[in-house]
Design a binder for these strands. Structure first.
Length: 581
RNA sequence: GGUCCCGUAGCUCAACUGGAUAGAGCAUCUGCCUUCUAAGCAGAGGGUUACAGGUUCAAGUCCUGUCGGGAUCACCA
């Protein structure tokens, strides 16, 4: 029960029912309160049928009695029965004080959870020696937003990145560079160049004659052995180039405002992972089959989870298990969430079932947050084929677009540097919001044109509303508003004002729902609605130009409250607050 | 073939997991800037929620089947 306004309303209803001789469960009443589908109907709607059924009464009769009794209540400004619903409006003076923190920090306060809880969130996972594309961006934005929401909900969070830095793709890339004497151009981003070398290497291999293919295969195998030997020139070059990729990734993370508590690589756990498998093979948990070692999960209809190939090498699942054990040991998380695209659903079912079979109870609190892919109009992106949309390319286009718009409007007043700075912040919001607003289970078909618009349901729209609020405050001739002073809140009786207040009160509930359902898009949607409701209020109600001083003050206070809530919401979505745009 | 996910307005997506007349954004049309930022607001048109059954006071949401799209199912990651 995170919505203070609905808590108040449910208490009013419980008390009123009690005076009628009906006992009702407060939580059940709370869950029977929703927002009116149309603003004209009212602010809140109480569904009578759930509680009526529990009380063994006819919903209509129950509703009529309750409605008549609520009409006498001094905290309710309007109440009307509409079939099985009772539509209500609370006096604004009842809601607004519930939304003010005494700390006056300018942010919505972090929630104190009833039980402490630690989350491990793994996300991003770009492979080194490959280009980073907008698919990775969706992953990171999803994971990072989830981390922020969980932290606001009072949980402790351990954010983990995990790079595929070994295996065939790396060997191919390095083999190609060294065999054909490639080198990056002066001033070129080396990480991006590596991604191109990987694409070129696959093209070279695919175009090879049978004799060349044999030769190439031997060369790649030699590079792979060189890297695994942890010494010699191939190993040294692998370490050097890997860093180029990691540097590029961090450039992108900085731009996106994404951070991690741990930046782990497959090579960090691959050795350990082999010994873990052997240990559990000896314990009789794992079995040998057709020369390979793995977990028999046929009782759970998950087949065979292979952990050692017949050549003795580990696989992806092997390392995932070793890394999970390391995290259980070192971080002691209550819940682990793996943000990975939905093609890995079967893989994670196997990994979790294997951890369970190994006797780790944490396995039952591991979740795969499976999201759909980002595709182009021509279908799936593949870094192997090179038909990807690189994130750095998208960033360049967005910033150019934003600069163009800003120059048109502000070239007379703003410096070039200021324009570039704000353009960057607008571009970041376009990317973050564009990626997070869609349900994780929905595919995103990328087209550049729609990403370059900053109107409607977009990140820049949120920034625009925030900038409007700041502008109102700059232009006000009154003293800066103090929310803890006497404010005649109940003067706020316009529909748009009541709608906005009720929406603000729902903030923490939406954070919680987004966390428990692992759907940060729900919070994005909440934030967009918040901005829209402010705009509706802005259009309907004069603020600075309101002649009545106490009403003007109350509206300025509502503007300030919105600034606090919208600002915090933007922080949770990593959408930068902009004071002028 | 088995398993999992998806199918909602011309297009892109919502719908707080069973609740009122299914909502937004693009796009189209109509209003609103000599008065708080028009990156905005208000309004119009646009829907048999793929199809057929079922469950119940109530189904886009749950169950069954059909059709269509995608993913995945042992030595890839």
């Amino acid at each position: 029960m995170f919505d203070p306004s609905k808590v108040l309303l449910s208490q009013i209803i419980v008390d009123t029912l009690s005076s009628l001789g009906i006992t009702a469960d407060r939580e059940r009443v709370y869950q029977s309160i929703e927002f009116c589908p149309q603003p004209e109907l009212g602010q809140y709607a109480f569904k009578t049928f759930i509680v009526a059924k529990q009380a063994g009464m006819n919903p209509m009769e129950f509703g009529t009695k309750l409605c008549d009794a609520l009409k006498q209540h001094n905290q309710i400004s309007s109440v009307a029965q509409a079939g099985p619903y009772i539509n209500l409006i609370l006096f604004s003076g009842e809601i607004a004080p519930l939304l003010i923190d005494d700390g006056a920090s300018g942010d919505v306060a972090v929630i104190t959870p009833s039980v402490p809880h630690r989350y491990m969130i793994e996300h991003s996972q770009p492979n080194t020696h490959k280009e980073m594309h907008i698919g990775h961006t969706r992953n990171s934005v999803l994971g990072d937003t989830l981390c922020r929401l969980l932290k606001h909900n009072g949980y402790s969070v351990f954010a983990q990145n995990y790079h595929g830095d070994e295996g065939a793709h790396v060997a191919k890339c390095i083999w190609y560079i060294r065999t054909f004497n490639q080198s990056p151009a002066e001033g070129q981003d080396k990480g991006t160049w590596l991604g191109q070398m990987y694409v070129d290497s696959t093209a070279k291999i695919e175009g090879a004659t049978p004799e060349e293919a044999e030769q190439y295969k031997a060369g790649i195998s030699a590079v792979l052995k060189g890297i695994e030997s942890r010494e010699g020139p191939d190993y040294a070059y692998w370490k050097e180039t890997r860093q180029w990729s990691l540097d590029m990734f961090h450039e992108v993370y900085d731009w996106l405002d994404v951070s991690f508590d741990s930046d782990c690589c497959e090579s960090d756990v691959s050795e350990e992972s082999i010994s873990v498998v052997k240990e559990y093979l000896d314990k009789g948990v794992f079995i040998r089959s057709e020369g390979a070692v793995g977990a028999d999960l046929s009782d759970k209809k998950l087949g065979f989870c292979m952990l050692l190939k017949s050549d003795g090498n580990g696989l992806y699942a092997t390392k995932d298990i070793a890394l999970a054990l390391k995290r259980f040991r070192e971080q002691n998380p209550d819940t682990c969430v793996y943000v990975v695209d939905n093609r890995q659903s079967h893989h994670f079912k196997q990994v979790f079932a294997t951890l369970d079979k190994m006797g780790f109870p944490q396995a039952n609190r591991c979740y795969h947050l499976a999201y759909e892919m980002v595709e182009t109009k021509n279908g799936a992106m593949s870094s192997r084929k090179g038909n990807i949309v690189p994130i750095l390319g998208l960033i360049d286009e967005l910033e150019a677009q934003a600069r163009g718009i800003l120059e048109e409007r502000y070239s007379a007043d703003w410096s070039a540097e200021e324009i570039a700075d704000v353009a960057k912040l607008i571009s970041r919001s376009a990317v973050r919001y564009g990626m997070i607003k869609v349900d994780p289970e929905s595919k995103i078909v990328f087209d550049m044109e729609s990403w370059l618009t900053f109107e409607g349901n977009t990140g820049p729209y949120l920034q625009y509303v925030f900038a409007r609020i700041c502008s109102l405050q700059r232009k006000s001739s009154d003293d800066e508003i103090n929310l803890s002073s006497e404010i005649s809140w109940s003067a706020l009786d316009k529909t748009s004002e009541q709608q906005l207040l009720a929406h603000l009160a729902n903030f923490n509930e939406m954070v919680d729902v987004s966390c428990t359902k692992l759907k940060p898009n729900m919070f994005a949607s909440y934030t967009y609605d918040l901005a829209r409701k402010f705009n509706a209020f802005y259009a309907e109600c004069p603020i600075n130009s309101e002649p009545d001083a106490s009403l003007r003050q109350a509206r300025a206070a509502l503007v300030r409250l919105t600034q606090i809530y919208l600002g915090t919401a933007m922080d949770l979505l990593a959408i930068p607050r902009i004071e002028r745009m």
